[in-house]
Every structure is written in structure tokens, then in C-alpha cells.
């Protein structure tokens, strides 16, 4: 395919279209806000009754401050992925999400403004926003080039199973953890969310006190995904968070084979921690690069990024072979 056209298709969906849509929404909302009185309804409760008043210009400011960072995050990730390698289905999903969130956010803000214009309630706007955004995002999917599955890493040599004597026991244990920089970054984000929720709770006189639990829950989930002990032995493969849970276990009798593969944390798994890839593999991902891949007879195949994965794969294959084959010479 023409390379310029290929890049243009990705760029137009991930960045240009969302930015143009945001631009239209901004111009429209500014012109609407200019026609409104200085004080209008800006917030509604969950039942759709007005519970906040302010300047109509809060709407265009809201559109810009929500849409632009989201476009930067989603679109930026897509550009990063497609720059490094072929376009993965996950990158396509992120690209159309860029359009999807832009439309939802813009429609809700614009709808609210139009409602403020007419003095009606906001209810139907949400449904309209969701429907419109989903249809456009689905159409955008087909503008994008065809996705490529299984980003090819360098070929890994086949694993020779560890030969075990009858009665011999073997174990392979290794820790896999996120890089220190990433851990501090995540903790920093949790602290930032914490400060925001505490300040909001104080400002709203404790009306929404329960949001203070959000950073605590986020931090707990993050902590449980920071470091893992990966173990291969007669029980099979066990991947346990250093906090104790969660645990991913593949019993030896479900192991068909083990391999070493190269994975891309962001473009294949969308990040770090326990996650399911679009190709239906359960991943425990702490970085990109060398990973142990286990094909199993039941449930999802498991992928874990860990150093010295070739020894782990060799032992798992050896153990699985010993378990299924009757004792030699017997």
C-alpha cells in the first residue's frame, strides 16, 4: 500500500477527525454561549434535575479541557504504536475510541447548552450522544488500514525440554516486576487522584465522600500488579502477585506446550498488569520483550513476561512430557 496514504488514514482517524470535531463543537458552543444569559444551569443530578448554575462559557471550556487531553492520550498512543510497527487491532480500537469520546463529550456539552437555550431537561442528550458516537466510530474503523495481528518479534529458537530422571524433582522460580520508574509514576497518579478527591469532598461538604475510596481501590489494584512470583514445578505454572492475590495457575495436566515469545506491552496488551489481549491470551505483563507463553487444553493460553523464560519453557515442557509419557522402559 502507498505509505503516505496508510499514514494519512491512521492520522485522520486518530488525531485529525477528533480535533476537527472538537473545533466544530468549540465554535458552535461559543456562539451558543454568547446568546445566553450570564448565568445558566451547568450541572444536573443523576435524575436529570438541575443542581448547578454558572457561566455558559463553562461549556466550551469543558469541551476543550476534556477532549484535548483524551485525544492526546488515545491518538498519541496510536501514533506511537503505528510508528514502531504494524497497526495492531488494539491500536485501531484506540484510534476509533479517540473519535468516540470526542463525540460523546462534545454532544453532551453541546446538548446541555441547547437544553439551557430551550430550558428543557437533559435526559435524551445522553442517548443521542451514545448512539451518534458509536455509529461514527464504527464507520471510522473501516477508514483505518487493515490491522495486523501478532506483531512479529525476532524468531526465537525452539525450546529443548529439560530431561528429568525418573523421580527427579525440579523447580524454576523467578520474580517479574514493573520497572521502578513506572511504579513511582503509578503511585504518583494515585496520590494525585487522592488529593483531587479529598479536595472535592471538602469543597462539596462531604456530599460525595465515597469518591475518596476511588484512589484507595485504584492503588490496591495497582499494588497487586506491581510484582509477581513465577513458578514452574510439578504442579504446573503458578503466577502469584507478591501481595498473595491475584493468582494465575495452569495445572500441569492442562499444559500442551510452552514457548518463548516477544511481546509488546502497549500495542498487544494495552499496558501492564493482568490483562487479556485481543488474540484471547491471558497476559501477566510487566514489560515488553521476552515472555513465557503456555498453550493449554482448557481455558485461555497464558503469557507472562519474565527473564530467563527459555529455562521456564524448557522445564515446563520437560515436566509435561514426563507426566504424560509412561515411565521409560516400563
Amino acid at each position: 500500500m502507498n505509505h503516505a496514504l496508510y499514514t494519512a488514514r491512521i492520522l485522520s482517524v486518530a488525531l485529525i477527525a477528533p480535533l476537527i470535531l472538537t473545533g466544530i463543537a468549540l465554535v458552535w458552543s461559543f456562539s451558543l454561549a454568547a446568546q445566553l444569559p450570564a448565568r445558566v444551569v451547568v450541572h444536573w443530578d443523576l435524575a436529570g434535575h438541575p443542581n448547578g448554575y454558572g457561566s455558559p462559557f463553562e461549556f466550551p471550556i469543558g469541551i476543550a479541557s476534556v477532549c484535548l487531553p483524551l485525544i492526546a492520550i488515545f491518538g498519541g498512543t496510536v501514533i506511537l504504536i503505528s510508528h514502531r510497527g504494524p497497526l495492531t487491532p488494539l491500536a485501531k480500537l484506540l484510534a476509533v475510541t479517540s473519535i468516540w469520546v470526542t463525540l460523546i463529550v462534545s454532544t453532551i456539552f453541546l446538548g446541555s447548552l441547547l437544553d439551557a437555550h430551550a430550558g428543557e431537561d437533559i435526559g435524551p442528550v445522553f442517548g443521542l450522544a451514545l448512539g451518534l458516537a458509536t455509529v461514527v466510530a464504527a464507520a471510522a474503523w473501516f477508514v483505518l488500514p487493515k490491522g495486523v495481528r501478532g506483531v512479529g518479534g525476532k524468531e526465537r529458537p525452539a525450546v529443548t525440554p529439560v530431561a528429568l530422571a525418573p523421580g527427579e524433582r525440579a523447580s524454576w522460580i523467578r520474580t517479574a516486576s514493573l520497572s521502578t520508574g513506572l511504579i513511582w509514576f503509578i503511585i504518583l497518579i494515585c496520590v494525585a487522584i487522592g488529593v483531587v478527591t479529598v479536595v472535592s469532598t471538602i469543597l462539596t461538604n462531604g456530599q460525595f465522600w465515597w469518591i475518596s475510596f476511588i484512589p484507595v481501590v485504584v492503588l490496591l489494584i495497582a499494588l497487586s500488579n506491581f510484582a509477581w512470583t513465577v513458578r514452574v514445578d510439578a504442579r504446573g505454572l503458578t503466577i502469584r502477585s507478591v501481595l498473595g492475590i491475584p493468582v494465575v495457575h495452569v495445572p500441569l495436566d492442562q499444559v500442551i506446550s510452552a514457548d518463548v515469545i516477544d511481546v509488546q506491552a502497549i500495542s498487544q496488551y494495552g499496558g501492564w498488569g493482568i490483562r487479556i489481549a485481543l488474540n484471547g491470551r491471558l497476559g501477566v505483563i510487566v514489560r515488553s520483550g521476552e515472555a513465557l507463553e503456555v498453550h493449554r487444553s482448557k481455558g485461555l493460553d497464558v503469557v507472562v513476561t519474565v527473564d530467563d523464560a527459555s529455562t521456564a519453557a524448557a522445564l515446563l515442557n520437560g515436566l509435561a512430557h514426563t507426566a504424560t509419557a509412561p515411565a521409560a522402559g516400563a
Binding site: 523421580g167 523447580s171 524454576w172
Partner: peptide, 9 residues
């Protein structure tokens, strides 16, 4: 780390 033992030894 790969650890191996043979109880028969």
C-alpha cells in the same frame, strides 16, 4: 532459577 533434586540419590 532452576533447582533440581533427586530424592533417590
Amino acid at each position: 532459577m532452576l533447582l533440581r533434586i533427586d530424592p533417590a540419590s
